[in-house]
Design a protein around this nucleic acid. Sequence first.
DNA 1: TTGAAAGCGATACCAA
DNA 2: TTGGTATCGCTTTCAA
Lengths: 344, 344
Amino acid sequence: MVHLPEQPVPSSPAPTAVPTSADVARLAGVSRATVSYVLNNTSAVRISEATRRRVHEAAEELGYVPHAAARSLRAGHSRMVLMPAPRVPVGPLHSQFFNDLQWALGRFDYTVVQYGGIGLNGDEAARAWAELRPVAVVVPDGGLGPRGVHILKRSGARAVVTLGPERVEGAHALLLDHVGVGHSAGAHLLARGRRRIGVVVPGEPGLEHFSRPRLAGVRRALEGTGATVTELPLTYEEEAAARLAGRWRSLGLDAVFAYNDEYAMLLMRALLDAGVDIPAGTAVVGADDLMLGRLLRPRLSTVHIELPSGRDLAELVDRVVRDPGGVPEVHQVLGARVVHRESS
Amino acid sequence: MVHLPEQPVPSSPAPTAVPTSADVARLAGVSRATVSYVLNNTSAVRISEATRRRVHEAAEELGYVPHAAARSLRAGHSRMVLMPAPRVPVGPLHSQFFNDLQWALGRFDYTVVQYGGIGLNGDEAARAWAELRPVAVVVPDGGLGPRGVHILKRSGARAVVTLGPERVEGAHALLLDHVGVGHSAGAHLLARGRRRIGVVVPGEPGLEHFSRPRLAGVRRALEGTGATVTELPLTYEEEAAARLAGRWRSLGLDAVFAYNDEYAMLLMRALLDAGVDIPAGTAVVGADDLMLGRLLRPRLSTVHIELPSGRDLAELVDRVVRDPGGVPEVHQVLGARVVHRESS
DNA sequence: TTGAAAGCGATACCAA
DNA sequence: TTGGTATCGCTTTCAA
């Protein structure tokens, strides 16, 4: 490819290059060093008030904004915390969590960047993230293996924290115990006298990381009780739910753990439309404890999930960044407890 | 602050510094230039197969990952598209849109970064974004003024696209016509014979950018018809909805536009619990056309909102980046159309 | 109090 | 085919 000279046809009013500290220095009639001192309020050096003013005015006039890449290149480190964007449609819980985390890390003077490594998988993605030289990486779902962790650390990441169902060698882990979610639901249904329990498994790709452990949890809760588990594949569509509801009686189930509240709402609607009595005929339990569960009739029983607070995670990140030497910590952070309402 | 020598107490197995292309060159016994040629597959230069292999092996062995900041510093530009994270809790529509956009821009070989300028406001935020020297910026809600646009452009952003209810001087705009959303709802309710129309205004801060125009749209639809508009402040809580429903009869309304589907669900539940007949007594219309609306009984009428496709926006961004000279484009991108179901 | 200059990591020109 | 080297923008030591 041939690079033409910059701005072959200057169509903008002022196709001027973006101002650098050298430009500011020139305009203020000082050296670049002085500009840096003034703009960063370097305390180790005293600059006369007059010079200060001149520099500030020059910077203002030029619309000077420092170049973050150059700065961190020089500094040898940044305060960027990278959080790869999850590739599955994220629920309100997750959004909320991300906002919290962002805010909390901001309090520690970190900058959170959400970066989409779409299309990349495994180590490819880790490499792409490593190029940004983040000081820490918080990885939501299971898209990172031990090799990825190694790559990130090798590239200077002082903290790698995974946030998912299982720990990853070398990284600190906040274990989101989805098995426990399923287990709670299963135990609850069992305690309510249910014996033939369906478990919704979303058909949407990318949700296996959550749905598999939840299913396993139900299984575990039912072990040795004689109660049975039936997998119920279901995509998030009305027709799919209607089809499932249509053959409900033939399934002979007396309860269903519907993966989460949204699937529960979908399925419950279809079941009611099909004349299934809830909870008398079939008990329904969701998960996530969203507002909508309280608005349904019958009110939806659900598994309340306690995500780690953004503050806690931010503190962990900061602690590890300051002392990266320690042994990877593993925290169980997902408190699962059943909120019993009317549907079970 | 005193900088101790790196790694005072090497607790990790190999506290080695992060490898640079110079390290790779040394290990492979070639120059840094050669390393660069090989790793970037520079076509303008031919490197012997043997050298290629040595370089690749060295890079592999060291776990070398290029330094994005250094690269873009040298190159003088990056392909980063910055999208400031919205500061309000984002709905499923928005998440979906962001994912689309990310994917679509990825097709053009851009990299999307979502950056949280939490706590900063106005020009402060713009300056923070400008420090990253993105080639383009896509700003979701109204957090950017003409000054901000100027700062970004001055810092090398070739495309600034706002995505919100009103255009911003100097930036390309995708006008999300929330007035039209309200207008559709109002016109629909009017056509259904309703005359005293309530409009829910969410109490949550940060939603005014959307709720005000929607309200204004309803007002406009009713102009000169004799029908009346009543503002209904409502926070997203069951108790608030119950209180509102409790004084419903005294309000004397025969219809309500509930801001969006989620607020509609909340309010509709409260109204039904209070014995209000829907739609006979009061018609309810939501917006966003979420799945949940179809699952409610009565089925929720809603305003379907057509967001711009990620592809379209990506194309706009790419086009403007390639030719930044043009006059800012303004696109109406929000197709609003009523989906009539049972609640109205 | 200010300036000159080295250097962070990668790339691309020009020589060899 | 490969290597030396200037350069991007910024910070920071060292000298003046």
